[in-house]
Each structure stands twice: as C-alpha cells, then as structure tokens.
C-alpha cells in the first residue's frame, strides 16, 4: 500500500505503524462506566468497507494519522493529521 502522509506525501506503508480503529474514543475518566471502558478497549466494528484507523508515520515525520481506508479494496479515501482530528473533537465536545 501507499499512504499519503499529510506532511511527507505518498510513502510505502512499511514506513507506517498501524494501531487500529480511530472511531473508538477514550472515555471520560471522571464519569465512564466499566462497560464503556470495556467497549473502548476491546470492542470493534471491524467493518468490511470504509474504516477510520490510526497509523503513525514512524519511519518519517512521526505524525499520527487518521486514515480512512476501504478494507475490501485497500483504497485510501482520506488522510488527516490525528492531532487535528483530536483537537476538533475536543472543540466539539460539550
């Protein structure tokens, strides 16, 4: 695969490390239930199709990226800097 890093351009995926599902959100420690922690830690949609996922450009700029990729075809639909995604998520949070 080739992943277009938002900072470095398109690179072979061997430069990147994979973490997994980017849609699971770390619960709010002050209020979360055990079930929410369990879901965050262990339960995944594992879709056949579009998947938002975290990669890190470990052999490049070290940026964490949110890559949206079709798991059936490996087609990469979008790439965003994870920090930007996380910041806008924080902003959107009440």
């Amino acid at each position: 695969m080739r992943i277009p890093c938002v900072y470095c351009g398109e690179r072979g995926h061997e430069e990147f490390a994979y973490l997994g599902d980017a849609t699971v959100q770390r619960p709010d420690a002050s209020s979360a239930t055990a079930a929410e922690w369990h879901d965050y830690g262990y339960v995944r949609d594992n879709p056949s199709g579009s998947h938002r996922e975290l990669w890190q450009h470990v052999s490049g700029c070290r940026a964490w990226l949110v890559v949206t990729r079709d798991t059936r075809t490996h087609a990469i639909l979008s790439v965003e800097a994870a920090r930007d995604v996380a910041l806008s998520r924080e902003k959107a949070a009440p």
């Binding site: 995926h13 994979y18 599902d21 996922e53 798991t71 490996h74």
Partner: peptide, 11 residues
Amino acid sequence: YNSYAWRGNLP
C-alpha cells in the same frame, strides 16, 4: 492492518 481483501502486500 484491518482487511477483508484476501491478499497481502509486498513488505
């Protein structure tokens, strides 16, 4: 990485 594509990659 997550995949349902039944094929691998070169690395």
